[in-house]
Design a binder for these strands. Structure first.
Lengths: 333, 333
DNA sequence: CTGTTAGCGCGTTCAC
DNA sequence: GTGAACGCGCTAACAG
């Protein structure tokens, strides 16, 4: 009833060679006579031998496994990133240990994953907590942040310039004649991760407007439990347009407006930020910042492979270009 | 520059005990004098010692890791299942190796994951291919199918009764006065995974209707590349209602109808099958079968833990109850 | 309650 | 081109 019965020894015996030789052919080492290689391969197939990756990991100190941390796999933003990560990972023969880290337990989960001897870690999230940063600094396992910046610039990361993107979004709305643009986001984006908010402020400043705190809307967590209330608040405010962090949230607002007879985009404009498929599901469809989500994940993983191979000249902080997709939730630009 | 420098030996030396004792306190073995336990724990903290899970896995033949295979992490159906799996897994201290297996490579990926010595595997997918079934039968690593049935009843699985669910859905539509109900699904649901289709047929039969093949609509892959074409076809057909496998697809159809002036539900009814959040995003909102997605994942993982612990009396084939959520894409029931 | 001793399955020198 | 031997870090008997 063992998981794995046939070992490298069995193969060696059957093929009448030493285990060292079997190891060589399994690892593609060239110094093996073609005939014995063939013999060994034959036995391997016959015995259905499969190298034990755990033993291999112990001996070689490499597991060809990377840890991937994210807050919520059901969130389209993160699963899009994860897809990019996964594709590149499998291209480079790495496996992925996926961990849904619910905020508080993050550093525990991280420690756990490090104990598995992963060769590298990709971290995604709404923010970078101090406990996680500490854990990262204490280990020398390569680390990359995907879709998130490190304010201190210490940790490699791949992201877009959200400040610029939000600046463009809000400025565009002003240019279209909207007067009072709100900003809606979950908590972290008002505390530890201010890229987007700063873009909003910058646009305000350039337009010569004061920050009006009654136009700032905060939702509690990523599952948006109070999403409906917030939408109601927004409708009752003097806002005639809003930029939203997260498509799920933007969709809630949109449906609330439409369901209550507010005309989008005539009376109210909505710009969202992730361009996931949700933007084309709602009516009206949503104008959105378009971060290359898949690519952010893919590039993150690519950089991680370089880090793991200790390659030189690695671009540590990549800012990918973003686009802007005009749809029906705003007037023509 | 090693990943892990401090080993159990270092702790033993520092604490002036044997490594066996250290191992005992790390593993919560009770046979340790409280005072030495405290001493060891102190050293562990001081040295920031973290047990090497790979070595542990090799010695104990257990990795506390399970493999999870799915076709597409960005698909809401699968990510909802994955969330349930993940929660229960972390509850039982298991890690998850996640693999996005794109159809053809499935058995390769599976073999790969088995090489990592996972303690168990959960498989999700649109169908169960022969190559995968073969691989499953060849190993004695515990296996569970989530959201999928094994026609032959050999492999443990957790699912709802889709035949019954679709039967109810279609019958309900007939009861509401719709005459020509179509069936829309991706390819596998017309070939290897007929639960849903059979429910459709059953309802037809009970209603005394002949199967009209012009009411069967097939989409090519899970990414629905030809989704728009299909929606067009459906609109051009004589169907006045449709049951759809997959919310993403249903949403495409809905939007196509509405965008082209077809009145839903007055002229055309839509019933979808997964009740993901998408159903409340579109307008009109979608009536849907409600499979308890999270629970299917959770129960799958729970069963897997039992299997891994070789517990007796394991319910191998679980059929979870489903509900039916009435929304605006159908007339009142 | 604690220490000693074998392995777990494989990679990797170092000889031959 | 091939084999013998050691070690990776830890668990699991077995003594004491």
């Amino acid at each position: 009833m063992e998981k794995q019965t046939v070992t490298i020894y069995d193969v060696a015996r059957e093929a009448q060679v030493s285990m060292a030789t079997v190891s060589r052919v399994v690892n593609g080492n060239t110094n093996v006579k073609p005939s014995t290689r063939a013999k060994v391969l034959d036995v391997i197939k016959r015995l259905d031998y499969r190298p034990n990756a755990v033993a291999r990991g112990l001996a070689s100190k490499k597991t060809t496994t990377v840890g991937v941390l994210l807050p919520d796999i059901t969130n389209n933003f993160f699963s899009a990133l994860a897809l990019g990560i996964d594709d590149i990972a499998s291209m480079y023969k790495y496996n992925i240990i996926l961990d849904n880290a619910d905020n508080k337990k993050e550093s525990q989960v991280l420690s756990n994953i490090l104990a598995k001897q992963v060769d590298g870690v990709i971290y995604m999230g709404h923010q970078l907590s101090d406990s996680v940063r500490e854990e990262i600094n204490r280990t020398n396992t390569p680390f990359v942040l995907a879709g998130l910046n490190d304010d201190k610039g210490e940790i490699p990361s791949v992201n877009i310039d959200y400040t610029q993107a939000f600046y463009e979004a809000v400025s565009g709305l002003f240019a279209q004649g909207y007067k009072n643009i709100g900003f809606l986001a979950a908590k972290p984006y008002f505390n530890n991760n201010l890229d987007r908010y700063n873009g909003y402020l910058k646009a305000l400043e350039e337009a010569g407007k004061e920050l009006d705190k009654s136009l700032l809307f905060e939702v509690q967590d990523s599952r948006f439990k109070n999403g409906e209330d917030i939408a109601q608040q927004i409708r009752d405010s003097k806002a005639d347009g809003i930029v939203v962090v997260g498509d799920e949230l933007a969709v809630k607002v949109t449906n609330h407006m439409v369901d209550n007879g507010v005309k989008v985009p005539e009376e109210f404009a909505i710009v969202t930020s992730n361009n996931t498929s949700l933007t084309e599901v709602v009516r009206p469809t949503l104008t959105s910042i378009e971060p290359p989500l898949y690519d952010i994940g893919a590039v993150s993983m690519r950089i991680l492979t370089k880090l793991m191979n200790k390659e030189e000249e690695i671009e540590n902080h990549v800012t990918l270009p973003h686009k802007f997709i005009l749809r029906d939730s705003t007037k023509d630009a």
